[in-house]
Amino acid sequence: MSEDWQLQSYLQERVQLVDSALDRYLPASALLPEALHQSMRYSVFAGGKRIRPILMLAACEAVGGDIKTALPAACAIEMIHSYSLIHDDLPAMDDDDFRRGSPTNHKVYGEATAILAGDGLLTEAFILLSDPEISKDVPADCSREVIHLLAKSAGSRGMVGGQVVDMEAEQQPIDLPTLEYIHTHKTGALIVAAVEIGALLGGATEQQRQSLCRYAEAAGLAFQIADDILDIVADQSQLGKDVGSDQERGKATYPALLGLSEARSRAHELRRMAFSSLADFSADDCRPLREIADYIVNRSC
């Protein structure tokens, strides 16, 4: 990796790579039912940073793998993430009007279509991962493990479970273990899955895989703490959605429980933990992962 390597250039290049692949893999807007497929594409292409798929590709490369092998799974995890945001914004959940600076899916297509668009994206992710033609170069046992890891991280023992506990905790007193459960499941589970799947598809050793999972656990929690902080300190143009909505709903957040200063300290501590998990990798191999962890924390701290 050259000395003039820049994170923003790397991220832009990877976003373009992932977006191009998503465009190929998603049903076309003109395919019946048109409104449903347009709704699915509306949220997927609403300007996301693609952190999860980029982390997957970076983990694959860090262990010497070919990112082409991981690209379909990277697209699948972004479909699942997009579905979760559509449902998260619904009136029955967070009732947000804006996401990434644009009206939320249900504001454009209506609640019923938004629900079905989320369902469609979740299902499409596994259609992609189980496509025999797309996965033909991946050993069958590896494909099964990828599908299992992604499904588990998205379901009741991962993201969905974290969302339920998050809703139950609104306007309720909460302790730190419960808050960490919410964050590590609602947000962290997909991030850990992204990195672990990237390592798996890249041919990681067991030691490399464990190290990368520790990295992802720290980075994933730091990501959600940074989001909690941004909800307080950012304006709507920075945040791309309604500011202060967590506070208004009495959401369980690090700043609410520990204060803003302590939340920032915890985010920086997690960044150091993420860095230390990469100690056995060469500086060049793990540079994107280190830089992304740094970016995750410094966007708010």
Score class of each variant (00 low, 15 high):
residue 180 E to R: 12
residue 188 G to T: 11
residue 171 Q to T: 08
residue 192 V to E: 15
residue 182 I to H: 04
residue 212 L to A: 07
residue 208 Q to R: 12
residue 193 A to K: 06
residue 194 A to I: 02
residue 218 A to V: 00
residue 187 T to K: 09
residue 209 R to L: 13
residue 201 L to P: 06
residue 191 I to Q: 02
residue 194 A to K: 05
residue 177 P to N: 04
residue 171 Q to M: 01
residue 174 I to W: 00
residue 176 L to R: 10
residue 189 A to K: 06
residue 196 E to L: 01
residue 187 T to P: 00
residue 187 T to Q: 07
residue 217 E to L: 09
residue 186 K to W: 08
residue 191 I to R: 01
residue 193 A to H: 05
residue 193 A to S: 12
residue 198 G to W: 05
residue 171 Q to D: 05
residue 195 V to I: 04
residue 211 S to T: 04
residue 208 Q to A: 13
residue 210 Q to V: 12
residue 189 A to S: 14
residue 209 R to D: 03
residue 199 A to D: 03
residue 184 T to H: 14
residue 207 Q to M: 09
residue 193 A to C: 09
residue 211 S to I: 01
residue 192 V to Q: 14
residue 182 I to N: 03
residue 208 Q to P: 09
residue 202 G to A: 11
residue 204 A to Q: 07
residue 217 E to D: 09
residue 182 I to E: 06
residue 214 R to M: 07
residue 193 A to V: 05
residue 198 G to N: 10
residue 174 I to H: 01
residue 190 L to D: 03
residue 200 L to N: 11
residue 172 Q to E: 11
residue 181 Y to R: 13
residue 185 H to T: 11
residue 176 L to K: 09
residue 215 Y to G: 07
residue 209 R to G: 13
residue 181 Y to N: 08
residue 198 G to R: 10
residue 197 I to Y: 04
residue 172 Q to F: 00
residue 178 T to F: 03
residue 200 L to T: 12
residue 173 P to C: 03
residue 212 L to D: 08
residue 184 T to W: 05
residue 197 I to T: 09
residue 194 A to P: 04
residue 175 D to Y: 00
residue 171 Q to H: 08
residue 217 E to S: 10
residue 177 P to K: 05
residue 179 L to S: 10
residue 180 E to L: 10
residue 215 Y to Q: 07
residue 178 T to V: 14
residue 203 G to S: 08
residue 177 P to W: 02
residue 211 S to N: 15
residue 176 L to M: 12
residue 174 I to Y: 01
residue 190 L to I: 09
residue 197 I to R: 05
residue 178 T to L: 15
residue 197 I to D: 08
residue 184 T to K: 15
residue 213 C to R: 15
residue 208 Q to E: 15
residue 195 V to T: 12
residue 213 C to E: 13
residue 191 I to W: 01
residue 187 T to E: 02
residue 208 Q to M: 10
residue 200 L to A: 11
residue 185 H to E: 03
residue 207 Q to R: 14
residue 177 P to A: 07
residue 186 K to Y: 09
residue 175 D to H: 06
residue 207 Q to H: 13
residue 202 G to R: 08
residue 213 C to G: 06
residue 206 E to A: 15
residue 190 L to K: 09
residue 211 S to M: 11
residue 174 I to S: 01
residue 173 P to F: 02
residue 179 L to P: 11
residue 192 V to A: 13
residue 216 A to C: 02
residue 180 E to Y: 07
residue 175 D to K: 00
residue 177 P to I: 03
residue 184 T to P: 00
residue 203 G to W: 08
residue 199 A to Y: 00
residue 186 K to H: 07
residue 216 A to Y: 02
residue 175 D to L: 00
residue 203 G to Y: 07
residue 203 G to L: 10
residue 210 Q to N: 13
residue 205 T to L: 10
residue 209 R to Y: 06
residue 205 T to W: 05
residue 191 I to D: 01
residue 194 A to G: 07
residue 174 I to T: 12
residue 191 I to H: 01
residue 191 I to A: 00
residue 209 R to F: 05
residue 177 P to T: 06
residue 213 C to Y: 02
residue 213 C to F: 03
residue 210 Q to H: 14
residue 191 I to S: 00
residue 206 E to C: 10
residue 202 G to C: 10
